[in-house]
Design a protein around this nucleic acid. Structure first.
Lengths: 223, 223
DNA sequence: GCAAGTATGTTGTAAATCCAACAAACGGAG
DNA sequence: CTCCGTTTGTTGGATTTACAACATACTTGC
């Protein structure tokens, strides 16, 4: 097993914290570390929102499901990021979304409020936590904004292009591999898979993109 | 003119701050108060994201516009809330959205980073600001999640119903007035206005809702 | 009260999307 | 390598939505 301490130090939630503080978190009875297999549900929609998840290894999807089985993928979260923090700190009782493990993953679940209650002496801890959380939540806010920008496009084609351009920007290259298979991409873009697949084929035929499974390339127009 | 001080004290960004701190903000050369008329642009997409907006009176919409003139309303922000804080604190240079005044409004624009630089002595100020911001950004995060939940619905009818149910919850009543006219609602739900209007009529005919302009009522099914 | 402008509702047609079913390509297990 | 489950691509028909044009209702300023 990898050194949990080293993994924790990489996590933005624990930024600038010292070993003593990390130890308090790690040793707290309100902290547990759990392994999840591919496609396993980490937290169910409707479940209690009392623990923040820290991805030590692997990755998870934040999803919501319709009454008619339409899956909506809200976000993809990788190690060493965290999830569910917004619901915990906003005192939401029930999770409005589910969290599903995409790969095999190891996840630390902590109850920061309980930890703080048990350790009223750790005043610096609270300050650091607040400031780290602000940075994290701000960044998530930007990601949600980007997701809204993409799904706000009125046509499937525009959604695909908006998504691909954001990925190109993220990868600093017109050549990149996306972290979704076709069904997951459709669930992220909120469109039908087969229609999306057809539209991707059209874009390829029109010479706007190249694609092979999850690998994409944006073709620049000649000026 | 209303007492600015009183208005500031109502704003969650300044929660728990004392008069001295408020005065520093108010008197700073990095703070300005400006009046905007209905439909006037407060900040343009692409403009610099260096100032946080505080709505002293009135309300604004956060919007984005397509190349083909499709308006997308991302959020509606009322007094005494704030806007643009995410972009300022995430060090985004260019605003990815526009801010438009919905009614006549008075807005305070502050550059918190400059203020902090000018006043290195105000350490408590920084702590309070961070903790207030965390609460605000967390809450916005929840609102963005809700917006995503609504626009993720695949049909216009489902979008309308999801929106109306969230409004009913917000108002704690099945009788409520929505803050959008038809075009704005369509721009928020990311659908065509006339198609939406037709769908609302259908819902009315089917006895699922009652509506008169911006007033709606959800009809409970009899068990 | 009237006129002009704005907002909302209605309708028919064109276009886009969903859906279901299937074909083809791929990847792992044995 | 072959088999089999999974992923991706393709197609046609049903459904939904967008679009444009117009009718009606409401609002505001005079």
């Amino acid at each position: 097993m990898k050194n949990i301490f080293e993994l924790m130090k990489k996590c933005p939630l624990f930024d600038k914290m010292d070993d003593k503080e990390l130890n308090v978190i790690l040793k707290s009875p309100h902290t547990k570390i759990q392994d999840f297999s591919k496609n396993q549900t980490v937290i169910s929609e409707g479940g209690s929102a009392d623990a923040v998840g820290i991805i030590l290894s692997g990755s998870v999807q934040i999803v919501r499901n319709d009454y008619f089985g339409n899956r909506s993928i809200i976000a993809l979260i990788d190690s060493p990021q965290i999830f569910a923090e917004v619901f915990v700190f906003a005192d939401i009782n029930a999770m409005p979304v589910s969290v599903v493990s995409v790969t095999d993953s190891r996840i630390m679940l902590i109850k920061p409020k309980d930890i703080l209650n048990d350790n009223p002496d750790l005043s610096s801890f609270h300050t650091k936590l607040t400031s780290n959380l602000l940075r994290i939540v701000t960044e998530k806010n930007l990601k949600l904004n980007e997701k809204i920008e993409i799904v706000s496009k009125r046509t499937t084609r525009e959604k695909i292009m908006a998504f691909l351009m954001s990925q190109a920007k993220l990868n600093n290259s017109d050549n990149f591999t996306i972290p979704y298979d076709r069904q997951a991409l459709a669930d992220f873009l909120e469109v039908d898979r087969s229609a999306m697949s057809a539209e991707i084929s059209k874009l390829r035929l029109e010479g706007i993109i190249e694609s092979d499974r999850s690998k994409f390339r944006l073709i620049k127009k000649r000026g």
